[in-house]
Computed example of a mutant assay.
Amino acid sequence: MKLIKYGLFAAFGIFLSCSSNQSNENKVKNGYNAELATQLKADQYGMSKYVMAFLKRGPVRSQDSIEAAKLQKAHLENIERLAEEGKLVLAGPFFDDGVIRGIYVFNVETIEEAQALTETDPAIKAGRLVMELHPWYGSAALKQINELHKSLQKQNVSEQ
């Protein structure tokens, strides 16, 4: 009786596995996932419009170290907020000490939308940073980076 019971359970498991694979094959053909492409608003090439921002050293760098640290913390909190809202898909600093301090990739269609978002940044408001904005065309998959990043992030940057 146990053998029949386990045999039926195994057969049911194989059936579920096969039907699951069949539905996945219908959804994903030749690597293309129409459902995901629609969800991410990808075009026929798997791409989307974005606005890339180059964060540059601003004209006002006279803050003392305490004020500069406060601005940096507020800047990072703003980055997190924009990422949570889905408006910012990628951000990060450059390691050198050049004029260009970092980049943002905004999940917006126009320079005007990105400009309005940059104006929420405390470091921009204080003149510590300025933004140079450019329309950009990149993989729609970038919209998934923030969720993936959360699974890799041991500590929140703004908590430092």
Rank of each mutant, 00 (worst) to 15 (best):
K2E: 05
L3P: 01
Y6R: 08
G7I: 05
L8F: 02
A11G: 08
G13S: 15
S17D: 10
C18I: 15
S19Q: 15
S20E: 11
Q22S: 14
N24Y: 12
N24Q: 12
N26G: 07
K29R: 00
N33M: 07
A34R: 05
A34S: 10
E35D: 14
A37M: 04
Q39C: 04
L40I: 10
L40F: 06
D43P: 07
M47D: 07
S48K: 06
S48F: 02
K49W: 00
V51N: 00
V51A: 01
K56Q: 10
R57T: 14
R57S: 11
R57M: 13
S62I: 06
S62V: 12
Q63G: 08
S65I: 14
I66G: 03
I66R: 11
K70M: 07
L71P: 02
A74T: 01
L76F: 08
E77R: 04
N78H: 10
E80V: 02
R81S: 14
R81W: 10
R81D: 07
A83K: 14
E84H: 10
G86Y: 05
K87N: 11
K87S: 13
L88N: 08
L88W: 09
V89G: 09
A91W: 08
G92H: 11
P93I: 09
G98K: 15
G98L: 13
V99C: 00
I100Q: 01
R101M: 04
R101N: 03
I103F: 15
Y104F: 15
V105F: 13
V108H: 02
E109M: 01
T110W: 12
T110E: 14
E112D: 14
E113C: 05
A114K: 06
A116W: 04
T118S: 11
E119C: 05
T120A: 06
T120K: 11
I124K: 15
K125Y: 09
A126T: 13
G127A: 11
E132L: 03
E132A: 08
P135A: 12
Y137S: 01
Y137M: 01
Y137A: 08
G138L: 15
S139P: 12
A141C: 07
A141D: 12
L142V: 04
I145F: 05
I145M: 01
I145Q: 00
N146W: 05
N146A: 09
H149W: 14
K150A: 09
Q153N: 05
V157Y: 02
S158E: 03
